[in-house]
Structures are given as structure tokens and as C-alpha cells.
């Protein structure tokens, strides 16, 4: 039953994706600047004919609705086109950069959950204590400060002053790793190379924390308020009256109920993780999709921007589906 419903939900994403494709197609063309001009601008003298030939090669000479039609039919066949700049299929470019982005996003999510959930729970249990006040003030900082600022301050403190963590990249220069999953932290473990593992892990910490800080702060706040409400429930009193230890009352009986609203927030925050990754990947020189998108926007490399944004949209939709599925496990009253 659950399997069929999940499949239904996945199929329902198709019209959403088509809509997104159309919107991004129009918006990127609405941005002033011509890709051919930008490409040729650096090449010295280029004749009008050469420019025209190039426009023709990219289909940019055709009316916009024809371009849209070509783009949609192509996309439905699974072909995202070729990068104007690099003359390489967009799919290849995305596949090359995606593992780095996934590694960073997962790192950020793990950081956010590992920090946010315990902080929220402790703040609620010790409501109005010093711990509570300090962590809520901290979460305010996490939500308010922009990624690039947090990233740069992080680099200043941990890389420049303390010299604990590297400033950019995924591995020290000179090191390389065999791609299995493309996530270096996992690959190095699969290869059994602890030195590579530590190296890639060190590189991952600061970008993950920067990207995950806002999400961690959000989780901590939601967790705290839902926990405060749950702790007043009758079933928490019953759990105590049964003779359970306070730890068991909180972790087993209260936490699971308090996680329900938190999971929704995590789903919605996927957007923050995706949007933030463009900035964070740029700040930390992380060779992922986000940094590629930023470069492609500068170059008006339409196909790459379109492909990457569609990937973002798809990820967002899938993340919300995963949240809905998780929900049914956490809350038996809800079905898909």
C-alpha cells in the first residue's frame, strides 16, 4: 500500500517539474546579457558572421517559444543540452559536481540535527535556565547571520588563527581519491584509507557547519517549543507515574512526539540548504553544483543554469516527499 502511494506521489512530481522548467527557462532569458557576447567579449575581434553562426548553433536565433519547445522536448527525453561555455553535456557536468554537493548537504544536515535536536531538548527540559538562554541566543545568531559572513568568520577563527581546519577544497592539494560514490568521506572509508578519511573529513567540517548553522538554529527552536508543549501532556505524566527514569520519559516518550513538527521544518529547510550551497560552495571553493551554477549565471550559460535549477527543484520536491513518508512512521494517525 505504502509503495503504491509513494509511486503515485513521485509521478505527481512530473507536472510540477514541467512547470518549473518553463519558469526557469523564461526567467534566465529575462536576465539582461547575451551569452554569445559574453563568450566572445574576451576573444578579441570576432566578426558578425561568427557571432551569428554561434547563435545559430545554440538555437538562440529562433523565437523564444520555439526555443522553449525544443528545450522541453529535449528535457523530456532526458537530455539537458550542452553547456555553451564548455561544449560538454549538462548532464555530465551535473554528475561530476553533484557528489560534492550531496556530501556537503548531508554534512550540513547531520550537523544541524546533531546540534539542533539536543540543544532544543535540553533547552526545553531546563527551561529558563542559563543553558536555555545561552542556546536560544546562539540560535538567534545562527538564523540571523548570512552564510557568507559565518563562512568567512569561521575561516578567520578556525583556519587562519587556530589553524585547525583547511580553508578550501575537498582534499589537500596533491592528494587524490578513487571515485566510488563520489562522497570522499565515504569513499575513503570504503578504500580503508584512514589518512584520506581524516583529510576529507577535516575539509568537510567548516563548510558543513556554515551551511547547517541556520538549519540547526531553526531545529533547536522548533524542537524546544514542541518539547515544552509535549512535556505538559498527560501521557508524559503517565510515563512518570509508571516509574520510568526521567531520561526514558524524555527520550522515549516525549522526544518522539516532539520530533513530528521538527521533521516538517527540516523538510522545508532543504530549500535553505540548497540556496545556501551556492554561497557556501563559492566561499569555500567547494567544487559542487552550487559553485557551477554561480559561474554559469555569470556567463549566461543557459543550459547549465536550467539543468541545475531543475535539479534543485527536484531535490526539494523529493525532500518533501521523504518528510511525508517519515511522518507516517512518526505519527501513526497520519497516512500518506
Amino acid at each position: 500500500m505504502r509503495g503504491i502511494k509513494v509511486l503515485e506521489r513521485i509521478l505527481a512530481t512530473i507536472p510540477i517539474m514541467v512547470g518549473i522548467a518553463v519558469i526557469i527557462f523564461i526567467f534566465i532569458r529575462a536576465v539582461p546579457g547575451d551569452p554569445v557576447d559574453l563568450m566572445m567579449g574576451e576573444g578579441g575581434y570576432v566578426s558578425e558572421e561568427e557571432m551569428e553562426a554561434m547563435r545559430k548553433a545554440f538555437n538562440l536565433d529562433k523565437p523564444v517559444h520555439v526555443q522553449l519547445y525544443l528545450f522541453l522536448t529535449q528535457t523530456l527525453r532526458g537530455d539537458l543540452g550542452e553547456s555553451f561555455l564548455k561544449q560538454v553535456p549538462v548532464t555530465d557536468l551535473i554528475l561530476d559536481t553533484l557528489p560534492a554537493t550531496i556530501e556537503l548537504a548531508l554534512g550540513a544536515l547531520v550537523f544541524a540535527v546533531l546540534v539542533g535536536v539536543p540543544v532544543g531538548v535540553i533547552s526545553a527540559v531546563k527551561q529558563n535556565s542559563l543553558v536555555d538562554r545561552v542556546s536560544m541566543a546562539g540560535s538567534f545568531v545562527g538564523i540571523s547571520f548570512p552564510h557568507f559572513w559565518l563562512g568567512i568568520i569561521g575561516i578567520l577563527i578556525f583556519s587562519v588563527t587556530l589553524q585547525w581546519l583547511p580553508t578550501n577544497g575537498r582534499l589537500d592539494s596533491g592528494l587524490s581519491i578513487e571515485h566510488i560514490t563520489g562522497l570522499y568521506v565515504i569513499d575513503s572509508l570504503l578504500l580503508g584509507d584512514l589518512e584520506l578519511f581524516w583529510n576529507s573529513f577535516h575539509h568537510l567540517i567548516l563548510p558543513s557547519a556554515t551551511l547547517g548553522a541556520a538549519v540547526a538554529a531553526m531545529i533547536a527552536r522548533v524542537m524546544r517549543s514542541s518539547m515544552l508543549e509535549i512535556l505538559r501532556q498527560d501521557y508524559v505524566m503517565l510515563a512518570r507515574a509508571k516509574g520510568l527514569s526521567e531520561y526514558r520519559v524524555i527520550v522515549r516518550h516525549a522526544l518522539r512526539n516532539a520530533l513530528i513538527p521538527t521533521v516538517t521544518v527540516v523538510g522545508l529547510q532543504t530549500g535553505v540548504l540548497l540556496g545556501g550551497n551556492m554561497v557556501v560552495e563559492t566561499v569555500f571553493g567547494w567544487p559542487g553544483v552550487g559553485r557551477m551554477v554561480v559561474q554559469s549565471i555569470y556567463a549566461r550559460d543557459y543550459p547549465v543554469v536550467q539543468g541545475a535549477v531543475m535539479l534543485y527543484a527536484f531535490t526539494f520536491v523529493i525532500a518533501n516527499l521523504i518528510v511525508d513518508i517519515l511522518y507516517t512512521y512518526l505519527n501513526p494517525k497520519i497516512e500518506l
Binding site: D234, H253, L330
Partner: peptide, 9 residues
């Protein structure tokens, strides 16, 4: 209130 005393999950 039995409705709120059993843990819903």
C-alpha cells in the same frame, strides 16, 4: 482523560 493519557505514537 484517557484520550490524552496514552502516548499517541
Amino acid at each position: 482523560d484517557p484520550m490524552t493519557t496514552l502516548n499517541p505514537v
